[in-house]
Amino acid sequence: MIAAEARAVAIGASAGAIQALLQILPVLPADYPLPVLVVVHLPPGRRSELVTLFAAKCKLRVAEGEDKDPIAPGTVTFAPPDYHMLVEAGGTVSLSRDEAVFFSRPSIDVLFESAADAYGPGLVGVVLTGANEDGARGLVAVAEAGGVTIVQDPATAYARAMPEAALAKCRQAQVLSIKDIAAALLEVGQP
């Protein structure tokens, strides 16, 4: 793993997301040096409970992205419901209400493609459990920019369609169990 270059982590998850993320995010220490950007597919029009839920379990600061927020190390930033979350090259969050991708807004592809532009080889992209194809195209963008690509082992996923789709498009991605993904993220955060 190209640990020295890592500048940010982007994670996408859909069906089964909460359980999967609960095994990853609380593992990261309070002084984790990378920003962690997360898209979880949620039904639109509902207030997200993600921040409350994960703030109680995580050592990292947990927030919901607002327009032009600076992206900070050691912070988990969730895409707000009903918005796409993008990364600007200067290290700030941009939001958009452009059309849904695979019926999803926020979309994993949108986050990954913009983060790949902004961080290039410094990005670690992770596709977790889910029942659609969002994230596959985005993970290809991460790989093409020279970033690290990780996919949850479909055999261990609550819903396998999304990791399978990601692997079909991005064959070089590492296939890891949830536990190993947490370990890999800890490792890329090592100085």
Partner: peptide, 9 residues
């Protein structure tokens, strides 16, 4: 315009 979103469109 914000670069990331205009680039995407």
């Amino acid at each position: 315009y914000a670069q990331a979103s205009i680039k995407r469109r």
